[in-house]
Amino acid sequence: MSALLLMAPALLLLLAVFVWPLLDYAWLSLQAQSVFTGLQPEPVGLANWQRLLADGRFWQDAGQTLRFAVVSVGLELVLGLGFALLLHQRWRGRGVVRTLTLLPWALPTTVMALGWRWIFNDPNGPINALLQSLGLASVPFLASPQLAWQTTVLADVWKTTPFVALLLLAGLQMIPADLYEAFALEGGSPWQSLWRVTLPLLRPYIFIVLLFRLAQALGVFDLVVVLTGGGPASSTESLAVYAYLNAMRFLDFGYSATVMLGMFVLLLISSAGLLLLQRRVQVRA
C-alpha cells in the first residue's frame, strides 16, 4: 500500500501527460472543431476518419515519414556500430573522444538545424563555396525535394548516431573478452568474429535501439520545422508537422487530433512489426 502511495504523484502526472492526451484525441477526432464551427466542438461521427483515409497529403506524409525513419535509423545503426566498435577498442584519449562524439546528440536539434541551413546554404554556404572554388556549379540542397530530403536524413543521422553508438557500446562492454579470444584461437578472423560473436550477442541492444529510434524518428518534428519547414512543396513534411499545421495554422483541431491518432496507429503497427521481426530472428537463431 505504501509503495503505491510513493508512486502516486509520479503516476498521476504520467497519466495526465501521456494517457489524458490520447483520450482527449479519441474524443476530439469525433468532433469538428475548426474555424467553420467557431472553434467550438461539434460531434461529426467518423467524418474526420473518412477524411483521413482519403487525404492524399496524410498518406504522402506517412510514406515520407516512414521512409525517413527507416533510412535514417538504418544508417544510424550501421554508423553507430562502427563508432561503437572503434570506441570500444583500447587507445589513448578514448575517454575524451567518447565525450566529444556525444556532443551532437546533446545539442538542441533546433540549434543545429539552423547550423545545417547555413552549411547547406545556396550559394554562400561552405559546401557550395567549396564546390564553386573547385569550378563546379553550386547545388540547391534545400530547394530540391530530393536533396532536401537527403539533407534532412543527414542532419538526423549526424545528431542521433552518437546516442545509438553509446547504447551499442554498452552492449559491447557486456560481451566477455574471452569469447573473442576463444574464437580467435579456433582460427576465426576479426571479420568473422564480428558476424559470429559480436552481432548475435548484441542483438538485444540492437533491438532496443531500433525500437527507441524508430519511434522517435517517426515523430520527427523539430528538425523538419527548422531545417526545411516541410518544404519544398511539403516534400520533407512529416506526419507530426502535418498534425501541427492542421492545429496551429489551419486551426482544425478535430482533424489534427485525428492525424495524431492515425500516426499513433502507424506507430503501433511498426512497433508490432519490429517485435515480430525480433521474434522471428530469435527463433531462427
Partner: peptide, 16 residues
Amino acid sequence: AAVFPYVLLFLALLEV
C-alpha cells in the same frame, strides 16, 4: 512511455 514520441501529445497539452 519512454519510447513514445511525445510530439504526439502537444495538442492536448496545449489545450490543458
